[in-house]
């Protein structure tokens, strides 16, 4: 039986498109470890992270909303290349927040692009909470 569970667990771990909940739980664990007073992620803090402007990697003043717009249910546009970006809200775009590997990749990239550093566990969880509930 133990073997079966191991095999099943392996299947789930390696699974493409692993649900985002597991990833958010691991961010929550990390946040709790860094600060025992951590109470949970917050969409309002996430909104602040998403909409506030910073001098980004290109030396220009940008925010996440510069490309994704302030309305996450609408398409955005890459402010440097003019490429259309599909809406971020999973309520209108079923492909959003379904693949943890993809989500992690974009959080790393886009935090670097806007904040010139990677996000902390709390920041990443807050932004995801904002997007998820938008």
């Amino acid at each position: 039986m133990k073997k079966v569970l191991t095999v099943l667990a392996l299947g789930a771990t390696l699974g493409f498109g692993a649900p985002i909940d597991g990833y958010m739980q691991s961010l929550a664990n990390e946040a709790k470890k860094a600060d025992s007073s951590f109470k949970g992620f917050d969409a309002a803090r996430g909104k602040q992270i998403f909409t506030s402007e910073h001098i980004g990697k290109k030396g220009q003043n940008i925010s996440c909303a510069s490309c994704h717009t302030n309305d996450l249910k609408q398409s955005g546009k890459n402010t440097f290349t003019a490429k259309v970006i599909d809406p971020l809200s999973p309520k209108v775009n079923k492909e959003r927040l379904v693949d943890a590997k993809n989500v992690e990749k974009w959080l790393k990239r886009n935090f670097n692009d806007v904040y010139k550093r990677e996000g902390t566990a709390v920041e990443k969880g807050d932004v995801l909470t904002y997007i998820k509930n938008y």
Partner: peptide, 20 residues
Amino acid sequence: KILISAAVGILLSGVSLFGA
């Protein structure tokens, strides 16, 4: 049952390993 579960597990990991 065990064999079926194992097969499903292998299938799942196989799909993700070779899917790309």
